[in-house]
Design a protein around this nucleic acid. Structure first.
Lengths: 154, 154
DNA sequence: CCATCATGGTTTCATCTGTAACCATTTGCA
DNA sequence: TGCAAATGGTTACAGATGAAACCATGATGG
């Protein structure tokens, strides 16, 4: 038996353990993307996600943003506070329900969005380019499926 | 054009954006596993990773643990402080280099390891069970490949 | 040798994140 | 109506995390 091994205890092989692999790959990719815009635009990951969702769906409430970003409402609230202060998101109160806010990107917000979105897409392409076409298709299919399962359970 | 859409700006579809999908899937799975042991054993994710690595490789230094867990040395230092205090890891000084520590699980550490490792494996099986056998094989292949690329670049 | 640089590891501080408590408004229903 | 429960959102606090400064030991080169 090789020194330092403990086969009786069946230790986990971390680097082949799927949840661990997912964590490493995900963090590495996200970090690479975030590095692109964090310094340049003083924009956090959470803020970017909020902007991305408001770019697609104008007029959402904070709660709806939270749903679509899979962030909790506290995180959304904080991200919005910064975005509004920076003049990137406009917020006004819903006409018939004074609790709700009605959110959308400002012109400044769109400007940043239109710079960051292509960069993000480029990073995604770079990631996928490391895989063969068949693998790319399988990865998309698998992630779509798992996302669906997660969605369904929530 | 549907209300609330802005096709001119080509907004990102977050839920089909691979880095975002990876992040959601990874966090969901990791959280599910962590929930299993955090409350029960008062054990954080970082601490568990350190334990898992020491279960496989006895006698590592803190720096080597950091390498194998992809954690930075500060995180490892903190995890070790807690683990040693809790009597789960033994630490003594390297005979010929007083800077290095020599780490390993104690009996108590092994006991926890032997409870947690099968739970973690079970969670991995549950994740994979959501996929068809072909998809499982592709996912493993893809993750192995991406892990290799990441490793190589560091 | 001894001054300098590199390495292993810890501490400090500032920031981020999550949980729970909270406030205001709206809804449901007796 | 009007009062309890639910909802949208913010604030307060505590624990986690990361970058940089730090301390001790070891390696290197004149």
């Amino acid at each position: 038996m090789p020194a330092g091994r403990h086969p009786d205890h069946a230790p986990l092989e971390l680097e082949r353990f799927v949840p661990y692999q997912l964590s490493i790959v995900s963090n590495t990719v996200s970090q690479a993307i975030a590095d692109d815009y964090q310094a340049r635009h003083d924009l956090g990951v959470t803020e970017w996600r909020v902007m991305a969702v408001l770019a697609r769906f104008d007029g959402l409430s904070a709660r709806e943003v939270a749903e679509r970003t899979a962030m909790d409402k506290v995180a959304v609230s904080r991200a919005l506070a910064r975005l509004v202060a920076a003049g990137r998101v406009r917020r006004h109160t819903h006409a018939s329900d004074k609790r709700r806010s009605v959110l959308g990107l400002t012109a400044a917000g769109w400007k940043i969005h239109d710079e960051v979105a292509p960069m993000a897409r480029q990073r995604e392409r770079e990631l996928l380019a490391r895989l063969e076409p068949g693998e790319q298709a399988w990865l998309r299919r698998i992630l779509d499926k798992l996302m669906g399962e997660i969605e369904a359970e929530r």
